[in-house]
Write a protein that binds this DNA or RNA. Structure first.
Lengths: 156, 156
DNA sequence: CCATTTCTTTAAGTTACTTATTTAAACGTC
DNA sequence: GACGTTTAAATAAGTAACTTAAAGAAATGG
């Protein structure tokens, strides 16, 4: 059965994808250096998620945690690193001082955009190698699979 | 452009998939316990890769490292854990005593098969929700993307 | 015999999370 | 207003899954 083979292929492919997806490429490292961010800065997929969320406006740490799908301390850590790299800053919400709002440091939008572009490139290439139908099926399958690994997917 | 949206969707989806893909479901934990493997055993996607490779016969640690795509010490660790859980064992190759061959502990094939089945389930469900065309496109896209994140994919 | 290479493991370190706990702020009830 | 409870973020402590460097043993070739 062809499907059996496809399933086995995905099973072997997933860990490999996971290992590769977090590594920056040389183009990206060069770009980061040119923009004055420390050369050893590591922008992980989790960081990219944060940057994307913030491109829509300031967010509290709790909101970021929820959007990204991690615990609040994990969100704190992700933000810590971006603050360290001078890309984002924290400030308190006047309306409720418990809340920490995270926003881009002025002038860093463009840097973040470049970083996001670089991280998109392999995805872009993959999708641009597919027909419209194929691309939609690819993303559909990816969504279905992600949902399938999620907590609501278990059956008794 | 529809493709832009698809690309952005994948960019946000990947970290979420990565976080979810390593977590065992409750069915799997129950099965593991029933088979006499410690209840806290965590069988990661990397372990699954090892189990799949070994289902084709004994392998040296170096071969496993290569097949799975990790460093030799990482393969050592993966094997360590499976040995700990009583699923595989090490023995030296008579022809070259430097080489450590890894093989299933007698009677553990079936346990491993069950574990692999459980790990396959979300993938199976996703693929079975797609038409034949869609399923092929999904795996094609996944492969292309994985290659795109790999070391040979960078361009000057 | 000896220098070099190969194979695996150990050692040391990093990253990306998690849960538990702490601190400060806000809320609701009396 | 006082006080108990809840909320938000950060800190503390720990785990898993890697990496590179180095060590130890075995094999190879001159």
């Amino acid at each position: 059965m062809d499907r059996e083979q496809l399933i086995d292929e995905v099973l072997m492919l997933l860990p490999a994808l996971m290992r590769l997806v977090g590594k920056p490429g040389p183009v990206e490292m060069g770009e980061i250096a040119r923009r004055g961010i420390p050369v050893d800065a590591h922008i992980s997929p989790g960081h990219v998620q944060i940057l994307i969320s913030l491109s829509r406006g300031p967010r509290s740490v709790g909101q970021l945690a929820e959007t990204v799908g991690v615990s609040p301390p994990a969100a704190t850590q992700l933000v810590d690193k971006l603050v360290e790299h001078g890309m984002v800053e924290r400030r308190h919400d006047h309306a409720d001082r418990r809340v920490v709002l995270v926003d881009y440091v002025p002038g860093m939008h463009e840097v973040a955009r470049r970083i996001m572009e670089d991280r998109r490139r392999p995805i872009e290439r993959a999708i641009n190698s597919l027909t419209d139908e194929e691309a939609r099926a690819f993303v559909k399958g990816l969504k279905l699979m992600t949902e399938g690994f999620g907590p609501t997917a278990s059956e008794s």
